[in-house]
Simulated assay, not measured.
Amino acid sequence: MQLQLIRHPQPVLDKRTCYGRSDIAVAPETLAQSVAQLLPQLQALPRDWPLVSSPLQRCATLAGALAKSLEKPGPRLDARLQEMDFGHWELRLWDDIPWAEVEGWNADLPGYAPGGGETLCAVAQRMWQAFTDLLAEPSKGVIVVCHAGSIRMLHACAAWRTEQGISTQPDEAAFADIALHAVALRSEIPYARPITLDVNVR
């Protein structure tokens, strides 16, 4: 099974701002440019590969435009693919978030809920559920439009599955391991570029 993971285009927002679950738009010209650069690579994929997307508009708008250009059914929206919820940190400048709260998260990355939102363990759990459903698709691949944090978490789910065996189901401690693995993936996730994730389903 191959997952083609695509991060949404750059949204209309200052990069110094904390945003996760907030529903941020993409400028029309940025969307058009993203579709144009993605189409040549996606047109080479088998036509039966479904298109699945986070419902947040920065993803769903791109996925809808790609579906139309590729003459596919509209994308299936999966709320589990959304970015992490940062609670009252959302849409605040990172520099305005109290340092004590940031340090609290650094001290317990898997279990601390930044801004009273989601813990990374909770994100790992819902992303694992989305991941297993993607692998259950009858096609040999899926195009997934989501977020940088979601892409890192899907890679972490795949790595844990490879290490532990395809029939093993994670427990609470395992979700903490998956979360920490995702945090350790420091490489930049580019906007609107496909990233291939190969997963052995047997």
Rank of each mutant, 00 (worst) to 15 (best):
G165S: 03
E172C: 08
G111Y: 09
I189Q: 06
Q169A: 12
V102H: 07
E163R: 11
V145Y: 11
H147Q: 02
Y112C: 12
A148L: 04
E101C: 06
E103W: 01
L154V: 03
F131H: 05
P190A: 01
A184T: 03
G149D: 12
A179M: 12
E103G: 00
P98W: 15
T196W: 14
A174G: 12
W94V: 04
R186K: 14
D198H: 10
D177P: 05
E118N: 11
D96N: 09
S139T: 07
P138C: 04
W105C: 10
G116E: 06
A136N: 05
A159I: 08
T162L: 15
P194Q: 12
D133G: 00
I166N: 09
A100W: 10
A176K: 13
E103C: 00
L135Y: 01
G111C: 05
N106D: 15
C157E: 01
R92T: 11
I166F: 10
G111V: 09
T162K: 09
D171G: 08
L91K: 04
T132P: 12
P138L: 04
M127W: 07
A192T: 04
G141P: 10
M153T: 13
L185Y: 14
D177L: 11
M153G: 09
P170G: 08
A192L: 00
L134W: 02
M153R: 06
E103M: 01
L120H: 12
